[in-house]
Simulated scan of single mutants.
Amino acid sequence: MSSEEQQQKKNNEEGEEEALKPLEIENGLRLVPRVKLNLTVYPSTPLTLSHPIDEWKMKRALIDFLHSSHSLTLPEDDDLHLTRLKDLKKRKRDDPVAAGTLRIWDLSSFRTENHRFRLTEKLNGIELNLEGVKFRLAATVPVSDDFQGMKKDWEEHSAFRSRREPDTVVLRGVPSRWFAEPRVSSKPSMLVTHTIFSTFGKIRNLNVAEDDDFGKDANEDSGDLVSGLYCKIVVQFERYRDFHDAMKVLCGRSLQKQGSQLKADYEVSWDKDGFFRNSRNQIQEKNNMVSTRAADHYRSEAPRRQAYNSRHSPDTVRPRRFKE
């Protein structure tokens, strides 16, 4: 291996180690690294269920497996979330019976970023035995946590479609109140958000809006989804390098506020649809439409004004007589 390759390998290892450390940003926020996996539970063989599966027993079976096979201990019950399929009548024999997420905060055994993929491979396909019925577990890394996968995607997009490097990060599912001005409003603030994301580089454009659709599918039966709870942030950087580094830092982390135990999961992606370019076009189209309507209105009013003026033109109006 050449000296350049050795240096590159060293830089990559250092970068992966940095990715496993918390990062302090502005406004009392920090980005906490974690491993997150999406879980889906299938019957090992096509199965018709006569009654719902026991979520608690399935969670215990999976927790025991993680502890015995990987020496992983989950300190909080919320770190493993499983939800069973509720409507058994609509379920086909080979459909999943449950789905959920696994979060691991203790990364002492994850020396590099690739360890999450190794854990995924080990969990993917394991069997869980519940009361004599065997189930198969499918584990995947969320798209939002796969930095290399997204980078490959945007590089291919730039090469074959837009021919320009991406520069815009899209963040969904962050708590609105953490981006608001204290004692002013609970709604996200452009000023506060700009200050926070300036940590990653110089910003060209920024958009912040409430995101009531986030989490609606997962919580449609809970009835406790509050309007304005989450916000969507679209931030365009001046330089590609700042965009790249921001994406790398945001992948595989959760957001935490100083003084709060809550760790907020968010979804990070890159803008492939030209959000700000399309926004400008929509504004321009709207302005053009207003101008066109105004011109049409003026033209339609012109004959009436002309007729009105002709009746009162200087040639037809009698001059006023003033007493001398």
Rank of each mutant, 00 (worst) to 15 (best):
Q6D: 10
Q8F: 04
Q8N: 11
E13S: 09
E13H: 02
L20S: 06
I25F: 10
L31N: 02
R34K: 14
Y42G: 08
P43S: 07
L49H: 09
S50G: 15
H51F: 07
H51A: 13
I53F: 03
D54F: 01
D64F: 02
S69D: 11
S71C: 06
L72D: 01
L74T: 05
P75D: 08
E76H: 15
L80T: 00
H81M: 07
K86A: 12
D87T: 13
R91Q: 09
D95W: 09
D106Y: 05
S109L: 03
N114D: 11
R116K: 14
K122W: 02
F135K: 09
F135V: 04
A139K: 01
T140S: 09
V141D: 13
P142A: 13
P142T: 08
E155L: 14
E165K: 03
V169H: 03
R172P: 00
S176E: 09
S176T: 11
P182I: 03
P182R: 06
R183H: 15
S186R: 04
V192Q: 08
F200N: 00
N205R: 05
N207T: 00
N207E: 07
D213S: 15
G215S: 12
K216R: 15
S222V: 04
L225F: 00
C231F: 08
Y240C: 08
A246C: 07
C251G: 03
S254H: 02
L255I: 04
Q256I: 01
K257W: 04
K263D: 10
F275S: 00
F276A: 00
N278Q: 00
E285C: 01
E285Q: 05
K286Y: 09
N288H: 08
R293N: 12
D296S: 15
S300Q: 14
S300G: 13
R304A: 15
Q306T: 10
S310F: 15
H312M: 13
D315S: 14
P319D: 12
R320F: 14
